[in-house]
Design a protein around this nucleic acid. Structure first.
Lengths: 239, 239
DNA sequence: ACCTGAACACCGTTCAAGT
DNA sequence: ACCTGAACACCGTTCAAGT
């Protein structure tokens, strides 16, 4: 039956099977475990067999990113721009949380992958339909930056460590600080326990990532809404 | 004189000399060229000699990051919080622009490096001195995220490619798009030429990164100022 | 024609042998 | 005691030999 398992594992290789195995491997073991050799072994195949279906590792990564980006909710044509944008960004965040390796992979690649461009294009479409000038839409896309993809872009992102080797979390400054650190960085120590949930039971548990993400997102969306209502434009700015 | 050059290159190795050479190498050739072997060769030294001064490559990267973070302007004690924070974030941005490898290095490391913690602590100090509650300061730090370090965190960051192998820029969607791409992504094509500088001469030159960064930064700072004036707090939020 | 093992040019780091 | 070459366990990818 070891033989049979071998046979099953050697089922016809395809680009799709490779991509799904690659995503699963990166999800489970971290992106640093995703080598062509490891992936081939996972598929019960000799490393060079992969190169029949993907040009090289870079192309593999691009395709993996497109799979993840494809998980983001599509736009709702008739909806209010602000509500629709908020919903899709939160959907993007959920997609990326399912694949903690994706943010770094996206940043590392130079990426103008098709799915990513399609997503960005649809976001601009939502803004334009919502009455944004092309000029303001341009700056809004810049201002949202990677947050449009649901990157929390926190300085200490605990989520990114998920699926890594099961070591203890790297103590973000917003969780309880060890006393000698707290003494050297009193301001960090002070805000560490001043999280949104003043609930004593949660203190020291770290931050509510979802709340913090929505806080920043709404800060941006509210400011953007204000600019749109003022028909803000950079066209006449002095340089 | 080749001998003399050799001798000069073999001048006493020190941790400081290693760090400065490492930063220079990463600045000039990109972070992917910074291998222990390359660095050793640059210093005219056998690879293993480095390990007398740095524990391993991770520790080297941490120390390099601290050098860069150390270039950020110190706070001005008496100043207005908003003006001071803005100035320091822009200073951080300049520091990181001098070292295009630093953002990715910082994100890759789990980093609670001393200089970084000191910088973050001083930023919180500025907020607290400006009358922010610990609660609001906490959320503000999250909302600013890596922008506090001057990361533009654009989706297509042309700056990050600086110092890479001199290939042509990867065509961000906001520069002039090739016609077949423009056809598939009409909304991106539309905003690409709707940059802040409606100056026809600049169209197709890409974006004014500095303007876009300040646009997003001010959007955040203005929103944050508004919350502070309302004495906003998350303490009583419903969960 | 297709597949694949060996090989190449790299890594970071360990370790034992040499001074 | 210090330094360092060789070696180990990895990479991605090329290429030629085998079927």
């Amino acid at each position: 039956m070891a033989e049979q398992a071998e046979t099953l594992r050697r089922a016809p290789l395809s680009r799709d099977r490779i991509l799904r195995a690659a995503v699963a491997l990166a999800d489970a073991a971290g992106i640093e475990s995703l080598s062509m050799r490891n992936l081939a072994q996972e598929l019960g195949v000799v490393p060079m067999a992969l190169y029949k279906h993907v040009a090289n590792k870079d192309e593999l990564l691009d395709a993996m990113i497109d799979l993840v980006v494809g998980e983001i909710d599509p736009p709702t044509p008739g909806a209010d721009w602000k509500q629709d944008l908020r919903r899709r960004v939160l959907s993007a965040r959920q997609a990326l949380r399912r694949h903690p390796w994706a943010p770094l992979a996206i940043e590392t690649r130079n990426m103008a992958t098709p799915a990513l461009l399609a997503y960005l294009d649809s976001v601009v479409g939502t803004l334009r339909a919502g009455g944004f000038s092309a000029n303001l839409a341009h700056h809004v896309m810049h201002a949202m930056g990677s947050r449009i993809l649901g990157f929390s872009q926190e300085l200490f992102d605990t989520a990114r460590d998920a699926g890594r080797s099961g070591r203890t979390t790297p103590a973000p400054p917003t969780a309880a600080l060890p006393p000698e650190v707290a003494a050297r960085f009193p301001h960090l120590a002070e805000i560490a326990t001043a999280a949104s949930h003043d609930d004593a039971s949660v203190v020291g548990q770290g931050c509510d990532d979802q709340f913090e993400f929505e806080f920043a997102l709404d800060l941006l969306l509210d400011g953007i809404e204000r600019l749109q209502q003022q028909a803000w434009t950079s066209a006449r700015r002095t340089r």
